[in-house]
Design a protein around this nucleic acid. Structure first.
Length: 398
DNA sequence: TCTGGGGTCCTAGGACCC
DNA sequence: TCTGGGGTCCTAGGACCC
């Protein structure tokens, strides 16, 4: 095998229509009908099976539009517990192949199989074994891209879909990459794609042959350098064995937040603040489980016309105390001075998370004396700044 | 009946400090 | 007087990914 196969040892495994596949796995009645996972009255499509996709249904599409495109589709609500279980089992299958598994999300992972070829065969053979195992044991299919770098492997798996494998040997990297639309590149979304197209950069090859400086002037220093590297397939990022933090064992979160779209737009301050309290409690509860505290409190407000703003404030000390965060959030909200603006969504997020152990105990644990006096001082600050009305919602707590 | 929810990273300006 | 140049922190917005 030698150089050629070991140079091509990165696998990107991507489950096919994961949520939809899992949701219909044990439902013979749903095998041959279009299926949409999502539903919910103001929501979007989370996943659609390939039958539904034939009607133009796509992930992230508003449910309303999806239903118009495919009225006969069966809509299934998501069962995240089940998705998580299947995902964990699949990732376990991967780890039997190699310990170098980098989980990207519930349905995606990179594997470096360089150390497994002697035991298991060529990367292509490993990919096929993996696909067979996942299918037999989990009853869902996946697609695999094989290449010498993570970015090319990821693009190859997309090309392999559904239920296939694509290998891109090193000598074919540029002929594989350059005909693709720039929008295929990781980090190029709708906006950047449109901007690049306006500049006449349609394909990855166009980007590759644009001077780095020109590219950076157009899309910014960081993204420009990133795109240039991707366009030549020269990124050498190594795979880091890790899980996503939702499953434990991943990198620590840098922020935690919660947001919710109202069933109906509202301008009712009581309703809005009650929702913010609920979201704050949800976040601090997760923070306590993770053992973290944070210094910066940010709120998100989305108006009926979908314009969205954020406001944030950094506290002197990290905290995980619901009252403190809620009080800061309401202070930020009231400082907006909204009159009768109708809101579609509110959100609360805590940033700058650090392990709770590194913070002064008194502030974090909400112990009676220091905790309450801190709370009092926070009330004083908010009152001083925004007037007593800003503090009143705290009474919702009692 | 348009447009979720969880995140990360980048940019840019102003404050502030040395 | 003609005006430095980092570096870091904070805030706001925006783009992107799954």
């Amino acid at each position: 095998m030698g150089d050629r196969s070991s140079a091509c040892s990165i696998l990107h495994v991507d489950m096919d229509a994961f949520y939809a596949s899992v949701a219909t796995r044990d439902r013979p009645d749903l095998q041959d009908v279009p299926v949409i996972v999502g539903g919910g009255h103001r929501g979007v499509v989370l996943s659609a099976n390939y039958l539904a996709r034939q009607y133009g249904v796509r992930s992230a599409m508003p449910n309303t539009r999806a239903r118009r495109l495919c009225p006969q589709a069966v809509v299934v609500p998501p069962d995240y517990d089940l998705f998580g279980q299947v995902s964990s089992s699949v990732m376990e299958n991967f780890r039997r192949v190699t310990p170098l598994v980098e989980v990207l999300s519930m349905d995606e992972a990179f594997l470096d199989v360089r150390g497994s070829v002697r035991r298991l065969g060529t990367p292509l053979q490993i990919a096929e074994q993996l696909r067979a195992t996942v299918h037999d044991e989990q009853g869902v299919t996946c697609s695999v891209g094989v290449a010498s770098s993570v970015s090319v492997a990821k693009l190859a798996s997309r090309r392999a879909k559904p239920d296939g494998v694509v290998v891109v040997p090193p000598e074919e990297v540029t002929s594989f990459l350059h005909p693709l639309d720039v929008g295929e590149l990781y980090g190029v979304g709708e906006k950047t794609q449109a901007m690049l197209h306006r500049l006449g950069l349609i394909t990855v090859g166009d980007v590759a042959h644009t001077p780095l400086r020109t590219l950076q002037r157009a899309v910014g220093e960081g993204l420009g350098a990133h795109l240039h590297a991707l366009a030549w397939g020269t990124d050498r990022r190594a795979i880091v064995a890790r899980n996503v933090s939702a499953f434990g064992g991943g990198d620590p979160d840098k922020s935690m937040g919660a947001q919710e779209t109202f069933g109906r737009d509202t301008d009712d301050r009581e309703v809005i603040l009650r929702e913010m309290l609920r979201l704050t409690a949800k976040v601090t509860s997760r923070m306590r489980v993770a053992g973290v505290a944070g210094r910066t409190v940010a709120i998100t407000v989305r108006f009926a016309d979908f314009t969205t703003i954020t406001r944030s404030r950094t506290l002197p000390e990290a905290t995980d105390v619901t009252q403190e965060i809620y009080r800061t959030a309401t202070g930020l909200y009231d400082a907006l001075g909204l009159q009768r603006a109708r809101l579609r969504l509110v959100g609360v997020r805590v940033e700058g998370l650090v392990p709770r152990g590194t913070v002064h105990r008194q502030l974090v644990l909400g112990e009676r004396e220091r905790g309450w006096s801190d709370a009092d001082r926070a009330v004083d600050r908010v009152t001083l700044r925004f007037g007593s009305a800003a503090v009143r919602p705290a009474s919702l707590l009692s």
